[in-house]
Amino acid sequence: MGKQQWCLRVNRQGAETVRRALLEEGTLDKSLKIRPDGDELLFPVISEREGSMMAEFEELYQRAPLPRHELVGGIAILAEDDPAGAAAILGDRPSVHTVLFAESAVEGEFRTKRFRVLAGDETTATIHTEYGRTFRIDLEKAYFSARLASERQRITAIMHDGEEVLDMFAGVGPFAVMLAEKAGMVWACDLNPDAVSLLIGNISRNRVSNVIPTLADAADLPEVFGRRFDRVIMNLPLMAERFLPAASRLCRPGGTIHFYALVGDEDEDTPLLRRIPSRSMEKRFVRSYAPGRSHVVYDIVVD
């Protein structure tokens, strides 16, 4: 059953001009659906006015705001411990099978978080799709950020065909698999055995033949490889700084290091950056991380 409300009868020919004027005035009743009536339209207004009349209108569905969350494949990660909000997300988003709340920050040498299931399936694993590639992810076993998708595309775009790339902290392989499109070869390394296991599966899942998974400590990589690369990815924002000397030894002159870090608005650049012989160094904003804190990347061309 509809709702009776004041309205204005307007010819269709000038209807858009009237609609915009009512919106600017704040008098259009946006909770009701504009109603066609022959060659005219009936615009619901919030109160009686000159030329208005009463008519019946269909109420528009008012979607309740969902709590703040991040989507990773079929998993929604809530910013707050909110079971009711989790249930609302599960009911509103058919693609979501699980809603999680992070009970810890990134911790330990494997960069993992502890999660609690608030709604849906009892799992922390999902399939995530990014620019046509698919990744099996287990958020409790290996670190993953969907928010770096555009950054992965940026680096792919600036690469030259045939480059040899080293991903020092590969995780489940999003950088390695994406960059493989243009690289000659990608060496994808991680210290976390679960991450490397997922990485191997994702290499196979995406039918990529030029990514070599490696279980190793990033600090040991200069000795492991004994060679240099055209491009080095350092996506370990909380602790990558201590691996900068190793990265410098692993990148050839003229090659590029992409060093990711979390910095405060007033923070100065880490002194270790100044110790890397470089031809150029560009600091780029990636995304907001927290109030007064940003995720940035330093693109360093090694001398």
Rank of each mutant, 00 (worst) to 15 (best):
L273F: 10
A84D: 14
T126Y: 11
D220T: 11
E164V: 15
F243Q: 01
Y298Q: 01
F225Q: 03
E59P: 05
E140G: 14
L244F: 02
S52Y: 02
H295T: 02
S150N: 10
F43H: 06
Q13L: 14
A79R: 14
D269T: 06
A246H: 06
G226P: 07
E25T: 00
F110W: 15
Y289E: 14
A87F: 00
D265R: 10
H97M: 09
V72R: 04
W187P: 00
G264I: 02
L118I: 13
G38P: 04
G26L: 09
I46N: 09
R49L: 12
S150V: 04
D161H: 12
R49D: 02
L215Q: 11
R133W: 11
T17D: 12
L8M: 06
V208Q: 04
V172E: 03
A157V: 00
A157H: 10
P83W: 07
A84F: 08
R114C: 03
E130M: 08
I155T: 12
F43D: 06
T256V: 15
A55N: 13
P253C: 06
T129R: 15
L272R: 12
D299V: 02
Q62N: 12
Q13H: 10
E163Y: 01
T123D: 04
A240G: 11
G73H: 06
T112L: 05
G120L: 09
I137Q: 00
V18K: 09
L100D: 05
L262N: 03
L32M: 08
K182T: 01
C7L: 04
T126F: 11
R114K: 15
V165N: 00
M281F: 00
E268S: 14
V301A: 03
P94I: 08
D303K: 12
L262S: 02
H160I: 00
A261T: 10
E48N: 10
A125L: 03
V177E: 01
R63P: 00
V186S: 01
